[in-house]
Design a protein around this nucleic acid. Structure first.
Lengths: 173, 173
DNA sequence: TGGAAGTGGTTACATTTGAAACCAATTTTA
DNA sequence: TAAAATTGGTTTCAAATGTAACCACTTCCA
């Protein structure tokens, strides 16, 4: 930092020069904000690790991750599982097909649907990325105790359920 | 849902038709992924509530929120506090100045720096958005017990510290 | 049956975003 | 003290994203 009235760390924000206003939003304790910063830091770090090596975008990797675990899904199924946009899925799928990472086959029972799967090459890549991703997650989880890890799990479930409610009903107000 | 091998809810993923592979990445339990979905859901819901009324983007509102609490920051300070991109800050700042929501003044000690503050109008808007944002946060936090809230607080601190380490040192591997 | 309505998926267009190049001011260092 | 390196901030351009319109197929229902 370069001047008196700034701080190198958010935890030092109570420097007297800062003239914190008591009724203000304490952004550094504001959950939506903290979630966003944390999530971006984590996702970007991981994406850096695989995007260069395998030429995958985040949405594309997500599609692979789901298909690796649950074969024979359609694009619509992916939309539902990932909460990603329909168009984002469509684009990710077409990139992945171009790269020969996934295959697409017609569903004869419903000729609008297209059934997606990892190709052999795709599964190969998938199996190389998975440990990488897990390494990051382990490192992250390693900063928590076993208790904290299980607390976090159930807390996320609750928050997710509440946020999901917002999306369903017409928001709060 | 439309077919046998899909599920309407991520918690139902263990349908026998799904042929889950034991060593695969369990994306629905993968922390980076869950954080991303949760964070996007929350931020978008809140943004919907203020963007229409005040014509603010998420980055712009963030800048206002920080400046409302900590006056006299430069763009670089904002980058550091928010973990947002430099360019995103620059654009948010120029929009906010155009809207007369913030002011920009030269730092005479270092003429590269520009000191930013909420304008009177900006503070006005800020003070109207803050309760709105808090309403959402309260609703979200309302889904947790007091214990869980304090657990979450310290868990986030730990995760953030670890993710911050990644950014500092050259990642994990 | 045969249209209206619904669903799966893609395309088109406008907006947002990010990386890299850039300018200007400052600090370093030889 | 002058060139080199660094820092604050903006612009440029390409890529990513979201909304809406759209086509093809299927389902519903008279």
């Amino acid at each position: 930092m370069t001047t008196d009235n700034t701080n190198s760390d958010i935890t030092e924000f109570s420097n007297p020069m800062d003239a914190v206003r008591p009724d203000d939003l304490r952004l550094e304790k504001f959950l939506p904000y903290r979630l966003s910063v944390l999530s971006n830091r984590v996702s970007n770090a991981i994406a850096d690790a695989y995007s260069a090596r395998f030429d995958l975008t985040i949405p594309a990797w997500r599609v692979m991750a789901i298909l690796g675990r649950f074969p024979n899904l359609s694009a619509a199924d992916l939309v539902e599982q990932t909460a990603m946009d329909k168009v984002a899925i469509s684009r990710a799928v077409s990139i992945l097909i171009k790269n020969d990472y996934i295959t697409r086959s017609e569903d004869l029972a419903d000729r609008r649907r297209q059934v997606l799967n990892l190709s052999d090459l795709g599964r190969d890549v998938y199996e190389r990325i998975v440990p990488l991703a897990q390494q990051y997650e382990n490192d992250l989880m390693g900063s928590l105790s076993a208790d904290e890890r299980s607390q976090l799990d159930s807390i996320i479930e609750k928050l997710m359920a509440r946020a999901q409610d917002w999306a369903n009903r017409g928001l709060i107000d």
